[in-house]
């Protein structure tokens, strides 16, 4: 376990970084998905058989959140673990 105060601060900052990585990515992804979903809802209301394809459109902006998630996981489990956090 980490005992050095500087290391503790460093680890704290690493965790904040991980939080920002997923937080900002998810916010951007959410905004994009919101716009796409609003348009898709209109489309499905008109042509209900297009549900599957509309879902695809809505799902596209989500990938960025996954990137953010991967970076956060890597920060936590690779960088932080490398510094002896676990």
């Amino acid at each position: 376990m980490v005992a050095d105060p500087a290391m503790v601060t460093g680890l704290g900052l690493i965790m904040v970084g991980a939080g920002l990585a997923i937080g900002i990515a998810a916010a951007g992804s959410g905004m994009g998905q919101g716009m796409a979903a609003a348009a898709a809802a209109g489309g499905v209301a008109e042509k209900d058989y297009s549900f599957g394809k509309m879902l695809t459109m809505v799902a596209l902006p989500e990938t960025q959140a996954i990137y953010g998630f991967v970076i956060a996981i890597l920060i936590i489990f690779v960088v932080a673990a490398g510094l002896g956090a676990f």
Binding site: E62, I66, F69, V70, I73
Partner: peptide, 12 residues
């Protein structure tokens, strides 16, 4: 690459 990483949503 994006398609492969997309499966990580299952972990999330």
């Amino acid at each position: 690459l994006g398609n492969v990483l997309s499966y990580l949503r299952l972990v999330a």
